[in-house]
Design a protein around this nucleic acid. Structure first.
Lengths: 121, 121
DNA sequence: GGTATAATTAACCTATAAGTTAATTAACTG
DNA sequence: CAGTTAATTAACTTATAGGTTAATTATACC
């Protein structure tokens, strides 16, 4: 499957989106990420979800002793954002959103202007 | 399946994304939309893809005699854009994109400021 | 009414996504 | 080194996504 399809596919699951939401608050180990879902599914199921997110370029896993800290990978999100850009004229019909967006700009001006690094795999 | 998952699911297929690309150039009948794909798949397959896009709120179908003109529905795209907004800080790391975005703003200022209509279904 | 065109529906097949339990790997801990 | 914790792998099941062909519906045309 092509990369973008894989990324959309990964996002087409509420569990995986919830995991991303969790990770948006910072790095997290697998067991930690799994905690909210262990009533609904097993740990191997969580492992599989994380593998899907990883292949989709939405998270990266590193190693710390027996833990596998996960964090959000911007690459996948950027691919989606780039694709969405093609359709901005369709979904951006209100100036409310623009106002909201422009508010974020001032906040951003403290951040680096470094070039984005190309998607690896 | 929840609505957003259904929308992401619909986008997780290159054929369906190509159909949206086609529709971004204007309304189109089913046979017209099917034309580029009839070497790879049958007409019923196309019908199915369109049904997926429709349920995802990405297109709408109307009636004109025996034709079913399709056009892009902003609702689905807006759902995705809204979700993406949660992660803007991750994928928006370059000011290039901002520059590009701001260029579109001037062009938009001729357009209506009407409130967006709420998603129906 | 009979035929052509547009599109869908029905019935079916096959690959795979998403889950399971049980076993395994890997690192730390006393 | 025996035991515990963290996570993955293996083998398997089940539902469904995406395709097929054949039949059906619906409208237009002569």
């Amino acid at each position: 499957m092509d990369q973008l399809s894989q990324t959309f596919q990964a996002l087409a699951d509420p569990t995986r989106r919830a995991m991303l939401a969790h990770l948006s608050k910072g790095e997290s180990s697998v067991t930690d990420l799994a905690k909210p879902f262990l009533k609904e599914m097993s740990l191997p199921a969580v492992t599989k979800h994380l593998k899907v997110l990883e292949k989709a370029g939405l998270i990266t896993k590193t190693r710390d002793a027996q833990w596998r800290p996960c964090k959000i990978n911007a690459d996948g999100l950027r691919d989606v954002a780039d694709w969405m850009e093609l359709y901005r004229t369709y979904w951006e019909e209100s100036f409310d959103r623009l106002d909201a967006y422009l508010k974020t700009v001032t906040a951003k001006e403290k951040k680096s202007k470094g070039k984005k690094n190309g998607r690896k795999k």
